[in-house]
Design a protein around this nucleic acid. Structure first.
Lengths: 195, 195
DNA sequence: CGGGTACTGTACCATTCGGTCCAGAAGATT
DNA sequence: AATCTTCTGGACCGAATGGTACAGTACCCG
């Protein structure tokens, strides 16, 4: 290994660039040309780094899940409270309606929408990602229950799934072009269901 | 006009077939070949019926909005109560997880996800569709308020948007591969927010 | 400095994409 | 039956798709 000429690109950056592209444009929507432009790689280097467009996509999606879950876990860990974590996450999703550039939404959701269940491998990645994110929300609910901001007799798994579903709903409204104010206001009824 | 050979296909059926295809596979995901197979038209007839793939897509999306809103309005009109209407709609969305075949979700949402905001015309159709569906939900909330199942002091517009957002969330969970039971259970916390 | 390794750019490939065109067949009207 | 209109199938188009092959070259190690 690694006898000879060393890599001239940063594999992590390249994977991230590929991920960003797939995230924004979806699988069918991103051409090889787009990927090359985004990564800065030549075609040969690209096919040496990833072995195909599909493989690149799989890796990108996996990378996305990884990044997302660790980021969320960290956020939950450093949050003042479970309740505040939940509210922050929901509001930040609503906040995507603010920035002028087109909202990317959640890549997992985008992928799930594009490949309904046509690709078995992709489906597996999606359900796995959803499961892991759900666990984080369940943990947040449990923490809020310990902190007595959510009633202890509620089912944390149910509420965790409810929150994930609500988050996806918010993101959908963002993509559909609703105004930031209208979307942010939805956080109130959403969180009312937790009480 | 209409002197000469008459149409051999039913324009309504053809538009519907095109809509189904775009609904399932999205815009990029549907090739001309797919459309021809679905509609049964020859290439010439297709380009005579619609003038381009884009035009067909616009018409299909418009047709979808039309169909959806009239169906929902009718459902609300014949429903026993506003509350029951809301519950039925949410549960039927959850029910899409039951059928073996891949869930199509809501075409408006699918389109909004595929074209974030890249196509101005499409964006307009999407926001317009969302607006119209929202109005139906708002009407349902108002009716439920009259029927005293939802408190009169709540903002019906807010709750209507909340319901649409929640519905989209449910559909997302369906697409992500969650089980029917898990999704149907979400209806409880969702509707709890209305109380 | 020489040899081997592995990256880089380009030319090339078959296929499919959306779309056009045209010759001809089929039906309605007279 | 003549004629006029309009639908139909297939040939054809340029461009872009994902992917491969190859020659050249930059780099590390001995």
């Amino acid at each position: 290994m690694s006898i000879g000429r060393p890599l001239e690109y940063d594999p992590a950056k390249v994977l991230d660039a590929a991920m960003q592209t797939f995230w924004r444009r979806g699988y069918e929507g991103t051409s090889l040309h787009d990927l090359l432009a985004a990564t800065g790689l030549s075609k040969s280097s690209f096919y040496q780094a990833f072995s195909s467009k599909q493989a690149a996509f799989h890796q990108a999606l996996t990378h996305y899940c990884e990044t997302l879950t660790t980021r969320l876990r960290e956020k939950l860990r450093t949050a003042d409270s479970g309740w505040e974590f939940i509210e922050t996450v929901l509001l930040s999703a609503a906040g995507e309606a603010r920035a002028g550039d087109d909202p990317r939404g959640c890549m997992i959701v985008n992928v799930a929408t594009e490949f309904s269940s046509r690709d078995a491998q992709v489906s597996e990645l999606v359900t796995d990602g959803v499961k892991r994110v759900t666990l984080i929300f369940v943990a947040a609910v449990r923490r809020a229950q310990k902190e007595q901001t959510i009633a202890a007799d509620k089912d944390p798994k149910l509420l965790g799934r409810y929150l994930l579903s609500s988050l996806s709903g918010l993101r959908t409204m963002v993509k559909a072009g609703s105004s930031h104010g209208a979307i942010a206001a939805l956080v109130i009824p959403i969180m009312a269901a937790l009480k």
